[in-house]
Design a protein around this nucleic acid. Sequence first.
DNA 1: TTTGGTGCAAAGGCTTTGCAGAAAG
DNA 2: CTTTCTGCAAAGCCTTTGCACCAAA
Lengths: 137, 137
Amino acid sequence: MDTNPKIRMTKQRQVILEELCKVTSHPTADEMYQMIRKRLPKVSLGTVYRNLEILSELGMVLKLDVGGTQKRFDGNVENHYHVRCTECGRVGDLHMPTDKEIEQKAQALTDFQIKRHSVEFIGVCPECREAGNRRVS
Amino acid sequence: MDTNPKIRMTKQRQVILEELCKVTSHPTADEMYQMIRKRLPKVSLGTVYRNLEILSELGMVLKLDVGGTQKRFDGNVENHYHVRCTECGRVGDLHMPTDKEIEQKAQALTDFQIKRHSVEFIGVCPECREAGNRRVS
DNA sequence: TTTGGTGCAAAGGCTTTGCAGAAAG
DNA sequence: CTTTCTGCAAAGCCTTTGCACCAAA
């Protein structure tokens, strides 16, 4: 059983990784596809999915399980917290120190073996707030 | 624009609410469907989805956006933290005080208007740990 | 040359939805 | 009676996958 076969750095894979690291917007697979297509017009959506999956297994990118129907991806592998807009689904970073201590507190309260934790703040982004204000005024 | 039309308490809706409040297992829609079918054999999966959606909009149940492909539902409406097993997807409650203060800290760091936050611990449940041990021994 | 990767399109899994008949109020 | 709800089945959305050809090493 070889769980780590040889990985080839194809043009597609490289561009996907580059573009994802370039932005801080936590794009969905489809948003990535649109970005990649500008540099590689013939790339397929399947390839984007496959590579995002592989890169996240390799720990080179993060697959985010934030709310909403689509998964999102993050080129910043360091553990950090996120904010999600309930209106448009956009996800932003929150640059605050992550609380490792909370994992120990949690571990004392459960028989699950805790590996990590994630925090998601839920709110409304400035753009959607603006749009909402316009609607009610 | 009537966002709150009259809600009728149908047998199906009532049973769905009752069964969800009865368990602490955070079932998926399909798991709910299996549970409900024992009491209402002719219920449809669509009805289960529709009612879970409606009940969560009314704030009578919680729709959980925890990791994994399927949404999960929770009869306990009070804000609390969860643990999810990376192996089987099972979700448990974590009975620890939720940290309201963290929302203020976060608010100071973002232009999103923060409404609430959720914390998910990720780990391995006792059963899956057990299964894993067996496999490697 | 030898694998692993790609593009394409079809299939899959979960959820939503249109519709005609059923039932709550 | 009126309006909402249900069961059924079809459709929808996102993601995964099989396959023949392509390309990295």
